[in-house]
Design a protein around this nucleic acid. Structure first.
Lengths: 182, 182
DNA sequence: CATATAATATATCATATTGATATATTGAAG
DNA sequence: CTTCAATATATCAATATGATATATTATATG
């Protein structure tokens, strides 16, 4: 055990909520999960075929309705596989912030450049925050509709809290760097 | 441009501060950078050989002093390569938090398990926080010794701020889940 | 109504990275 | 004088990214 591929688990997790196409899975990833998890088409599509081969998901041809849409549904085995993975402690939580990395080596670049990295980061966070806030709004309203909403809300509130902290840090960091220039 | 491998840039960045062995690079990564960047031996050692081949670093045999220690130093070309990369905007900032991922799919596992994921996360953060706080202390005392310290301090304060927010969130999340049980 | 554009949809592949493991030396503790 | 932890380099299968190719459908615009 504990050898589960992450991509299989995320996909099964999303399929545990609803049946989806590969494209829709990527969209969910880019919206609902993007502030704590990411995946590319290059891992999603092969993983979907693999999950079908292993009987953890089934593929249905949605062509009846329109175009070559392939719809995936989780199986009982898939649900058990997911549950087994969920029962294990999280093996890794990590950040990969290129902004922080560039800032760490700031002595090599000077304050102007360091400042512009912070400003770009700040702008990115300010742009994403409204989406999280509106998601929170909607989730709070429909809190009792589905059990999944409660957990979704927990992760959204994590995102909102950390994003606010990021903005606080940006303000302080900018001040610290600017002050030294004057 | 903009095709720089991340691993090359982190290594050159660390070498811009001081000459290091591959093992020491990994150690720096695991301590000073771990809360915003990570890398494995499997990427460090091949990258070092590659950097030497491309003239961005030089390898010196430290065997004179002891054992088969290979010490790496950044070259002028290496420094220029680093500066060029630093001048470009950060291409990606992302989290990869398995804890949040498992929590997102909480409906499939129930509140007990969700709670234990949060508790494990909380414990991990509480364990790491003191290291950041002591680093902050030391950096503040030696703030003016080297230019690099100022930038290091910026990233450390980012870590401290976000970790405190994580702990706040943990408390709220635990309460939310526990309240519903009673 | 034609057509340009954006969104939907699947797929592949070279390149990058992880995670695990193997091997050996050195320093410190008991 | 031996065991244990730390130092040190290295490799490799498995995994994931990032970029790109291709085609269809829906929508907007002159």
């Amino acid at each position: 055990m504990a050898n589960e591929k992450k991509i299989d688990c995320v996909i099964l997790g999303l399929l545990s909520h609803e049946e989806l196409t590969g494209y829709e899975i990527k969209k969910r990833m880019d919206t609902a999960l993007s502030y704590f998890w990411n995946a590319s088409y290059g891992s999603i599509y092969p993983a979907l075929s693999d999950l079908v081969d292993r009987g953890l998901a089934v593929r249905r041809d949605g062509a009846a309705s329109r175009r070559n849409k392939l719809i995936y549904t989780i199986t009982e085995d898939g649900r058990n596989y997911l549950k087994n993975w969920l029962a294990q402690p999280a093996s890794k939580d990590e950040l990969r912030y290129e902004t922080l990395l560039k800032l760490f080596f700031g002595a090599e670049q000077g304050e102007e450049q360091a400042l512009s990295h912070i400003e770009a980061f700040e702008a990115k966070i300010k742009k994403e925050l409204p989406y999280l806030l509106s998601a929170e709004q909607i989730l709070k309203e429909h809190q009792n509709d589905a059990d999944a909403h409660k957990y979704y809300l927990l992760t959204v509130s994590f995102g909102i809290k950390t994003y606010h902290t990021y903005l606080e840090w940006c303000a302080e960091a900018k001040q610290l760097l600017s002050a030294r220039r004057g």
